[in-house]
């Protein structure tokens, strides 16, 4: 039994090893391509022998098939290979094939930037709240892997700007910046070698700060109700809180409660609630509490 296993293994080795060797030898090349070619540049390759042959260049970005004359050099124009990547070449002449591998690299000249700026909306005065990521591409939309100096600038509506620069690594650079204290749209720009890309970041007011309300009776109009109105609601940086923000009025009285969620309109929230003598009326927006009023003008 063991001898059969031995024989089988020997056979496998005998069959496999020359195969592997052949595989390795297939990579031996007589075709001399430059090891690296910059995308969009012209170059030529010399050949040996005589007669005609077919040249195949295959890569994930480009495919070329060309009939060439052996013994002459093969020329490639700037438009022939412009996608960066690893290419394999075969020169087939009759039964013989010559192989080669080479790389097309991205141009060093940045032409476009993919700029990811996030978030598109954030509260004011938030440290490191804004992030920018830039990918640098050449004119053929190849990622430029060589380091590039990229400048990021975030300028708010008043013109104040934060500027940072970063060096790209493997084609990407990133920064984080603070949002400004003043609400409004801010311009966020990335720039490399005079190539710019802009984004707009909305800097919005933060939570309301110290909500204050007043209460007054409706008099003859409706004695049973009390009118409530806030002062203009602002965040802690003085920015007006946007209209539509909900302000909750709650009236608590003996054995009961009334409440209403009112949106800010033109900066203030106002409503009417049933009037109860001795009722405590409070105001809040989200988790921020405002002042309290003890109402003594009710029925």
């Amino acid at each position: 039994m063991r001898s059969w296993v031995t024989l089988l293994c020997a056979l496998i080795v005998v069959v496999t090893v020359p195969g592997l060797a052949g595989h390795a030898s297939a990579q031996a090349s007589d075709l001399r391509f430059p090891q690296k070619v910059e995308a969009g540049t012209a170059f030529s390759v010399s050949t040996t022998g005589s007669g005609s042959a077919t040249l195949y260049i295959i890569g994930p970005g480009d495919t070329i098939r060309r009939v060439v004359h052996l013994g002459e050099s093969i020329s490639f124009g700037p438009d022939d290979l412009h996608n960066a990547g690893h290419y394999v070449a075969f020169l087939v002449s009759g039964s013989s094939t010559q192989n080669a591998q080479f790389e097309v690299t991205a141009s060093h000249q940045a032409a476009t930037l993919s700029f990811l700026a996030k978030p598109s909306r954030l509260p004011v005065n938030l440290p490191n709240g804004v992030s920018g990521v830039a990918y640098v591409f050449d004119i053929f939309r190849n990622l430029i892997l060589q380091p590039q100096q990229i400048s990021f600038e975030l300028s708010d509506s008043s013109g104040r700007a934060q500027i940072r620069s970063a060096t790209s690594r493997d084609g990407v650079a990133w920064v984080k910046m603070n949002s400004a204290a003043k609400a409004g749209p801010a311009q966020f720009q990335a720039e490399v070698a005079s190539v710019r890309n802009k984004r707009v970041i909305q800097q919005v007011p933060g939570d309301p700060c110290s909500i204050r309300m007043t209460a007054h009776g409706l008099g003859q109009k409706d004695k049973a109700r009390v009118a409530l109105e806030t002062e203009p609601v602002r965040d802690c940086n003085g920015n007006p809180v946007p209209d539509g923000t909900i302000v909750t009025f709650t009236e608590t009285y003996q054995g009961g409660q009334s409440m209403v969620d009112v949106p800010l309109k033109r900066g203030v929230a106002k409503t009417e609630l049933p009037s109860h003598n001795g009722a405590v009326i409070s105001v809040a927006s989200g988790v921020v509490m405002g002042n309290e009023i003890r109402w003594s003008g009710g029925l």
Binding site: G256, S258, M259, T271, L273, P274
Partner: peptide, 28 residues
């Protein structure tokens, strides 16, 4: 839309056995 604004008035807890919260909705 921020409208309609609904007031929730006269909220009152009713104790056992009919434990419930009652009130009325007012469309402002």
């Amino acid at each position: 839309s921020a409208d309609p604004v609904i007031g929730i008035e006269g909220q009152k807890l009713t104790p056992l056995p009919d434990s419930s919260l009652t009130g009325s909705l007012v469309n402002q």
